[in-house]
Simulated scan of single mutants.
Amino acid sequence: MNGGPALVSIMRQGSTLIASVHTALDDSQLVRFEHDLVDQIGEHRSRGVIIDVAALDVIDSFAALTLRRIAEMARLRGALTVVVGIQPEVAFTMVRLGMGTGDVPTALDLEEGLALLAAHAPRARSGTSTDTSNGYP
């Protein structure tokens, strides 16, 4: 790296990773971000991921595809991903161009993203066993 300002920061809050994209990323930087984030999901045993794109004034087709891929990889690793902070103009353009986030949940901001993850968190059920060590539910 060149020692300049961070393009993306990834922080952990409990079992949630919060990744903030601070500036537009080129395709190679997006791929690096994807790999770093997916690696950290396993390293920290994360159950939720929030990707904050509020600083972006453009989300191109490759960026939208990368967000969907990250969410799918995170899901396969046991984490739910929420994209937050899509600017109104960006949302308008994405819809006009037929791009979207697919099945990836979105929220207005970080606070709503955390609330969405909390609402989807698995809850322990009293009186029921969750032991599946024998391979059967």
Results as ranks from 00 to 15, higher is better:
Ala6Ile: 03
Ala19Lys: 03
Ser46Gln: 05
Ile51Leu: 09
Val38Tyr: 01
Glu43Thr: 11
Leu76Tyr: 06
Asp26Met: 01
Ala19Glu: 06
Asp131Thr: 01
Met73Ile: 11
Asp131Ala: 09
Gln40Met: 15
Phe62Pro: 01
Thr106Asn: 12
Glu112Leu: 14
Thr93Trp: 09
Ala107Asp: 09
Ala63Ile: 01
Asp39Ser: 03
Arg12Ala: 10
Ile10Tyr: 01
Thr106Asp: 11
Glu72Arg: 13
Val104Thr: 13
Asp60Glu: 03
Met1His: 06
Ile86Gly: 00
Leu116Trp: 11
Ser129Phe: 01
Asp131Cys: 11
Ala74Val: 04
Ser126Leu: 14
Val53Gln: 01
Val90Phe: 04
Ile10Trp: 02
Phe92Glu: 14
Leu7His: 00
His35Lys: 14
Asp109Pro: 09
Ser20His: 00
Ser133Asp: 12
Ala54Tyr: 12
Gly113Ala: 11
Ala71Asp: 04
Asp103Ile: 15
His22Glu: 14
Gln29Lys: 01
Ala91Phe: 06
Ala119Asn: 15
Ile51Thr: 05
Gly4Glu: 10
Gln29Leu: 03
Arg32Gly: 03
Thr130Lys: 00
Arg77Lys: 09
Phe92Tyr: 15
Thr23Ala: 14
Ile59Ser: 05
Ala63Glu: 00
Gly48Asp: 06
Ser133Pro: 00
Gly113Asn: 06
Gly42His: 13
Val31Lys: 10
Ala55His: 07
Thr130Pro: 00
Val82Arg: 05
Gly14Leu: 07
Ala118Leu: 13
Phe92Cys: 08
Asp60Pro: 00
Glu34Gly: 05
Val84Glu: 05
His35Val: 14
Val95Trp: 11
Arg75Thr: 12
Leu17Asn: 04
Ile59Glu: 02
Val90Thr: 06
Val31Asp: 07
Leu117His: 06
Asp60His: 06
Gly42Lys: 10
Ile51Met: 12
Ala118Gly: 04
Leu67Gln: 02
Val83Tyr: 08
Ile59His: 03
Arg77Ile: 00
Pro105His: 14
Met11Asn: 12
Val38Gln: 06
Arg69Thr: 14
Val31His: 07
Leu65Asn: 12
Thr66Pro: 03
Ser15Met: 09
Arg96Leu: 11
Leu56Tyr: 09
Ser133Gly: 09
Pro105Gly: 11
Ala119Leu: 15
Ala121Asp: 15
His120Asp: 15
Gln13Gly: 11
Ala107Leu: 09
Thr23Cys: 04
Val95Tyr: 11
Val58Tyr: 05
Phe62Ala: 03
Glu89Tyr: 04
Ala115Trp: 08
Arg123Met: 09
Ser46Val: 14
Arg32Ile: 05
Phe62Val: 09
Arg12Leu: 10
Met94Gln: 06
Glu72Phe: 12
Asp57Tyr: 04
Ile51Asp: 02
Val38Met: 09
Arg32Thr: 12
Ala74Pro: 07
Ile18Gly: 04
Pro88Ala: 05
Ala121Trp: 12
His44Ala: 13
Val53Tyr: 04
Leu76Pro: 08
Asp57His: 08
Leu108Ile: 12
Asn2Tyr: 02
Ala115Asp: 15
Glu72Ala: 07
Ala91Gln: 08
Thr81His: 04
Ala79Trp: 07
Tyr136Ser: 10
Arg123Phe: 05
Ser15Glu: 15
Gly42Asp: 13
Thr128Pro: 13
Arg12Gln: 11
Thr66Val: 05
Leu97Met: 14
Arg75Ser: 11
Gly135Val: 02
Gly100His: 04
Glu112Arg: 14
Asp36Ile: 02
